[in-house]
Amino acid sequence: MSHATLHPTPRIADALREQVRTVALSLRGPAVVALVLLALGSALAIAEFVTGGGPVDFAPELSMLPGIVGFLFPIAVWKSERRFGISFLWLLPVDRRRHALVKVAAGWVCLMATVLFFLVWMLGLALVTGGNILGDHAVRLLPSAIVPQSGTLDPAALRTVLYAPEPVLWLVPFTAATGAYVLASAVAIGVRHPLRWAIGVPLSVMLVSVIGAAANIDALRLLASRLVEFIHEGRYGLDALLTARAESLNTAVILATGKTVSVWRGLPDIGEWAVATLLWIGAGLVVLVAASSRQRERRRPRAPVSP
């Protein structure tokens, strides 16, 4: 046989298309479960609406759900795949490292479809119940960014402003899910036992706090909370990625009159959100590509032993 007639390896586009199909197929189970839950929740909401309760408002940036789903998605994507060790994938004529990234990309496509479906569903629900979607609404603003002690705030100090959410905020669920997914995927393909890390790291941080509290070292005791605050609620923190900081800016305080009201420490800034998104997704991609090197096929360019 002439060596010139070698069989070709598959094209990346074909592999990607096939992986989207495979991932989608493998997600049938969880999809059904999720659909059932969504249907149940919607039924309850509609029931409440019909019996006189309020309409269903949907603010796309406020929902943490896309971010959470994006973070958990790789579990489903890689569940049936042996990520380390000889698997069916290893027998195929593909570069393993590249194919791992192809699979991540395929999972991302399915994720975006899921988020879109979720968004459309919620939109429908809000429309049906006459709820507010991306419309202007009045919000109470605190005089300063510092949250006052409960019971000290004078109601008159609150300013009521009209908050007009920008339409670009409709992208937040997609970017939030993407950012979370990229980071989680990096862990999935880069680490042999992600569960150990997922439990181990928070546990260690908590341990440090406990030790700090026991030994009365303020720096350690507050380390955990400060770390979380910095990562999550910083200007370009995780919350900026996930909800354009709407989650952390929105809080409840007890007024001097004893009433509890929902107030905002500040309003979501689109510029900050854009920067945070780019930073997180960019960093995530870098980590992902680095992690993919753990999937590479080992090549050992050893000099041949003389026969």
Binding site: M1, H3, L6, H7, P8, T9, L91, L92, P93, V94, D95, R96, E297, R298, R299, R300, P301, R302, P304, V305
Partner: peptide
């Protein structure tokens, strides 16, 4: 140690091509 060749291709360097 050593090398393995399939149709002249080094199996370690050209894994995907060999498997095709």
């Amino acid at each position: 140690g050593g090398t393995a060749r399939v149709f002249g291709l080094d199996a370690a360097q050209h894994g995907p091509e060999v498997r095709a």
